[in-house]
Design a protein around this nucleic acid. Structure first.
Lengths: 201, 201
DNA sequence: TTCTTGACTAAAAGACGTATTTAGTCATAA
DNA sequence: TTATGACTAAATACGTCTTTTAGTCAAGAA
């Protein structure tokens, strides 16, 4: 299996993941076939396997992509000129709502998808959370340097920020609860408010 | 179906739930039959239906019982003479670890159980969380009266305390992660520390 | 040569009729 | 009045056959 990474290659890969998102939303994991997918992308079936080694890997990569985008946004916020408090609040809201928005159109199929790949997804979630908490940690340390925050263990504190908002992520919520974006936003904001105050000097 | 509530009745009901816990741990939801259950309790099969109207209801009642016990403990802590801070910390730890301990012996069957009853369980979880947050709310108000805490909306703040620790509850964690009691305790404590500081005056 | 493809295959999923098990009922007995 | 287990309808398991599909690879296109 070749995988020369060219602009071309990258674009097709992205196109496959775009189609994956579309078909996943419409059909769910089981009913999305590789033939469907190839047709939707507009390439031959075999070509799919030039980019991914299995159906599972395609869907996991699709999830990875969402989290990569979350990370990108988080880093952008982390590097901005806002004050630490604003950064932390915006980051917490983003990690919850970006995911929410990314899967909102999956009305039905999210549970089924997670049922099929639960184990694999859970393994990766640990890594996602760890990477995200790393970004939070850096913002925390910056906040400490500025002298407005007091945190004894930035690592653990960053993890706490992640865990405290994890129960609002799509994977933890039943499909029906996913309807209420406003409520979720309100809840993250409340938690963010308390957490941030909780680390102030 | 009669359900005269006598000491006798209550005892048998409890015995049924005790057996449920045992059989659920050994066989899981699907493979636990009502015949098994009746035999384990030492009563006739029909008698089970004098106390519960369906298999689903038995298992849901079993879960209810765990949460009732959590609530009882929470109320006990809430009424104790500890200072508010201690109460809140102990309550957060208890709501996570009591549940953990209640299902720890389900090595394998917890996921399967939740898969079968996910929808029904989720409906109830909302109620559980609401009831628990009510207990937290009262402690918060007491803390405000004592003058050491500053909270604008005790309702929402209590909810935030609940949500912030929800991702550490058994239903949200994969079976394997459930192994590490110490780690979970450490994480709740860290979150508790920040949350409590976050509402201090 | 390098890359793409769709026909091909093995394996998985589905369809379907049959046999077995089981949740829930109820006439009978204690 | 309360408890029971034989009973029934419905669900589940099973065996067999058929269809679908994930993944491969020889052949063709660029």
């Amino acid at each position: 299996m070749y995988m020369r990474i060219s602009v071309q290659t990258k674009e097709i890969r992205e196109a496959i993941l775009d189609s994956t998102d579309r078909l996943l939303a419409r059909y769910g994991y089981q009913k999305m076939t590789i033939d469907d997918l190839a047709k939707d992308v507009g390439i031959g079936k075999g070509s799919i396997y030039l980019h991914f080694k299995s159906k599972e890997e395609i869907v996991l990569s699709h999830i990875d992509r969402i989290v990569e985008r979350v990370k990108k946004h988080l880093i952008k916020i982390a590097k901005s000129n806002e004050k630490t408090e604003t950064k932390l609040r915006e980051m917490l809201v983003l990690r919850v709502l970006f995911r929410f928005d990314s899967v909102q159109h999956y009305t039905e199929s999210l549970d089924e998808l997670l049922a099929s790949l639960r184990e694999k997804v859970n393994e990766r979630r640990k890594i996602y959370f760890q990477e995200e908490s790393e970004i939070f940690r850096e913002v925390l340390e910056e906040g400490i340097e500025n002298g407005s925050y007091e945190v004894n263990d930035t690592q653990k504190t960053a993890e706490a920020f992640i865990i405290a908002t994890n129960s609002l992520l799509p994977a933890s919520l039943s499909t029906k609860e996913l309807g209420k974006r406003n409520e979720i936003e309100e809840k993250v904001l409340k938690i963010a408010e308390i957490l941030i105050k909780g680390i102030k000097k």
